[in-house]
Write a protein that binds this DNA or RNA. Structure first.
Lengths: 231, 231
DNA sequence: ACACATCTTTACCTAACCTTTACACGGCCT
DNA sequence: AGGCCGTGTAAAGGTTAGGTAAAGATGTGT
């Protein structure tokens, strides 16, 4: 789960952004004053900072400059149109992106995700989890992003693939819908949200066309479990 | 077997790291003084150097600077939080990575492996980088920078060539747009950046004029994959 | 300065995809 | 038995990623 800190004196705006980000499964805090914001950004463990340029207490550019002495936390600047964007993004200050006010909250979310994905990439070099998984008559290969069932290729969408991969990696364990929603869909499970059920259903349909076995058990009220091979 | 040398005055820490690295099949030595460390690094045959910034005898940055005059051995810096990371990683000193103390030993191992893998890759690329690649009815020759499709030459621009080469070298694997943008275009993928799509489109058009086969698969939401020949 | 090649951005479109809605079924409790 | 709740799934609806044409920007050589 990613923690976002927003430093902006516009309370209406921060509340709006809060709503959107919570829906997408982020943790969110807002601070409405520059100096307090700097301290919070320095001390707490923030994954990404949303920073307004115009701020009471301390303006955003100064804040960023100060923060950069001690932190490389990714920063997305919120600017008024016509601000000195080159300088903000350039080496001198080193923001990761900017967005001109007023902005579309969806766009903001998209940019946040883009930045975090970029960061993720850098850390990913050390990621090893790319060995093919083989259970029952299923083979799932993250490297080629292919799934075979009884040697027949099964075409899965990105989400279906992630879902199946997660279940297979946790074979034998019960995985709750809450966890699946958060890790696979990237958002908290909402009331009446049937997306996961649909994806599961689709996976089963696609797999069952090759194999009648059902590895994916439903544990009513608890979640799902992928049968381990021993069983 | 890879040989790791750690230069750090914290004996408890070096012992901890020793345990982890031995378990992972590395050879390991530790030296607790800067000057002695430099000499050891210069003389012995080390595959990777773990270097603390704060050191008795000679500080890590000076050591690295001196070492770089004679050696290109990969270096992973161990820093206190808030050290001038840019300078460490930058061209001036040329460390390969850094890790802030206190760190998780697993993370350290992961980064070490990542660096060594990277080095390995580079060596490999230099080694085989000049042999022509042949897949399906495509032949791509890095040496002459020519591409033939069914014996017919296909004129590609520099970017298109690099893109195709990267995909062919990773035939069978999914390659994300993020990775392609970073490696081929040399910049992080931005939101709404369609350059890659365009280059892909152009490559496909040029190739398809000679051959109706489509080796380049799109995996919506995941990236692209060049079909391996076996399949 | 100009022409040319290349790369990037913009814009539009479509198909693939994800989510929502709706209804059905079956377990579980009282 | 009856009702509630969680789940399966078909179908509809809305959204988005990707293909590509065309315009714009950038670069390079003459």
């Amino acid at each position: 789960m990613n923690r976002i800190l927003m430093i902006d004196d516009d309370v209406t705006l921060t509340e709006l952004v809060r709503d959107y980000l919570l829906l997408d499964g982020f943790q969110f805090d807002a601070i409405h004053d520059g100096q307090a914001g700097l301290i919070a950004a320095q001390q707490s463990n923030v994954d990404l900072l949303l920073l307004d340029v115009m701020l009471p207490g301390m303006d955003g550019l100064t804040l960023l400059k100060t923060l950069r002495k001690t932190s490389h936390c990714p920063v997305l600047m919120l600017t008024a149109r016509g601000d000195d964007i080159d300088r903000i993004l350039g080496l001198e200050l080193g923001a990761d992106d900017y967005l001109a006010k007023p902005f579309n909250p969806r766009e903001l979310v998209a940019r946040i995700k883009a930045i975090l994905r970029r960061i993720e990439l850098v850390n990913q070099a050390q990621h090893e989890g790319s060995q093919p998984l083989e259970l029952h008559d299923l083979r799932l290969d993250p490297q080629s992003r292919q799934v075979h069932c009884q040697e027949q290729e099964v075409q899965l969408t990105a989400t279906e693939f992630q879902l199946l991969e997660y279940l297979m990696r946790h074979a034998g364990q019960v995985v709750s819908k809450e966890v699946l929603s958060q890790t696979v869909l990237g958002r908290p499970l909402q009331l009446h949200d049937r997306s996961l059920d649909m994806h599961l259903s689709n996976i089963r349909r696609k797999i069952n066309s090759s194999s009648p076995e059902s590895y994916i058990q439903t544990l009513r009220g608890s979640g799902y479990r992928f049968l381990p091979t021993a069983g």
